[in-house]
Computed example of a mutant assay.
Amino acid sequence: MTIKTDDLLNSILESLSRIDYIHSGEIPNIDLYMDQVTTFMEKQLESTKRYPQDKILTKTMINNYAKNDLLPPPVKKKYSKEHVLILIFIYYFKNILSIRDIDLLLKPLTEKYFGKDADFDLSSVYEEVCQMEKNRVQSVQDDITALWAQASESYADAPEEDREMLQLFAFICSLSFDVYIKKQIIEKVIDSFPTSRH
């Protein structure tokens, strides 16, 4: 692919190196009203938006999550730090999983760790997962670079004026295949959860 598209790869890799997460210590230790929760989430996750007008979280979303038992109900209309942690998980899962699968995945966590005073709590679960993901950034960058190289060698026989577009298409298809396969694996693992059998 051309220099312009190589700049695209470099931009992708650079954006991956900047990926961070909301540290549990950044979440207020005081209970928040819904407006405060939506404002906090909007500010903290703003960099994940595709379009500026997109909303990270709305009051309607929060109410629906509580109504569908994805999120424990607020106490006197206030949401705890643990509510915010669950909302962060929901935010990331909702792009690839059904509401039912998210419920099956989060139910054991909320039943065992939500609202419990213990050395190992929901913050501990969250921090461990985030650290594990942060440690994977380099391997993800390596995988993307390899897929890019493979796509760059594709369509050698295509008309020259179409080659770059077709190579980008091949790159997107490779990434999409990865997402598709991983989604299948996630669903299979969720189906094996003891709570998913009722």
Rank of each mutant, 00 (worst) to 15 (best):
D35C: 02
K49S: 03
P72Q: 09
R18E: 11
M34C: 06
I144H: 03
D178Q: 14
I30S: 11
I96A: 09
Q131P: 00
S17E: 10
D31M: 08
Q167P: 01
K77V: 05
D7I: 10
M34R: 01
E42F: 09
Y79N: 01
T39I: 09
D6L: 07
V179L: 13
K4R: 10
L9F: 02
A170R: 01
W148T: 00
P194E: 15
A156M: 04
L109W: 14
S174I: 01
D121E: 01
K182P: 02
H23S: 08
S80Q: 06
N63G: 02
D101C: 09
I172P: 02
M41I: 03
M165L: 12
C173D: 01
S123Q: 12
K78N: 11
P73G: 06
R136C: 11
Y91F: 13
P72S: 07
D143T: 05
K107Q: 15
Y33W: 03
Q131W: 13
L97I: 02
I27K: 03
L70M: 10
I88N: 02
F177C: 01
D101M: 08
D31K: 13
V37R: 04
Q131V: 04
I181A: 12
F193D: 03
K67L: 12
P194C: 06
K81T: 03
L8N: 03
I62K: 10
K116F: 06
Q167G: 03
K43S: 14
V137L: 15
V189G: 00
I88Y: 06
I186S: 10
P194D: 13
I19H: 06
P28H: 06
D178P: 00
C173R: 02
L85N: 03
Y21S: 15
Y21C: 09
A170F: 03
Y51L: 15
I27N: 06
R163F: 00
L104H: 12
V137A: 05
E153C: 04
E46F: 01
K43V: 06
D162Q: 09
S176H: 07
L168R: 02
D142W: 02
M34E: 05
S11E: 07
D121L: 09
L57N: 06
S24W: 06
E42T: 05
L105Y: 00
A156W: 02
D142F: 08
V140M: 14
L13S: 09
R197C: 00
P194L: 08
I3M: 13
Q138K: 13
Q36K: 09
I186A: 14
M41A: 07
M165Q: 11
F89A: 06
P72N: 05
E26W: 07
A149S: 13
N135H: 14
P108F: 09
K59G: 13
S192G: 04
D121W: 12
I86W: 14
D6H: 12
Y65F: 06
L85K: 05
K77G: 04
T48I: 05
I62W: 04
L57H: 08
S192V: 00
P159H: 12
T110H: 12
K77R: 15
Y92Q: 12
Q141N: 10
K67S: 11
L16Y: 07
A149K: 15
F93R: 01
D143N: 13
K112N: 11
Q131G: 10
E42R: 15
H83M: 14
S154P: 01
N29W: 11
E111F: 11
E160I: 08
D101R: 03
L166P: 00
S174F: 08
F171L: 08
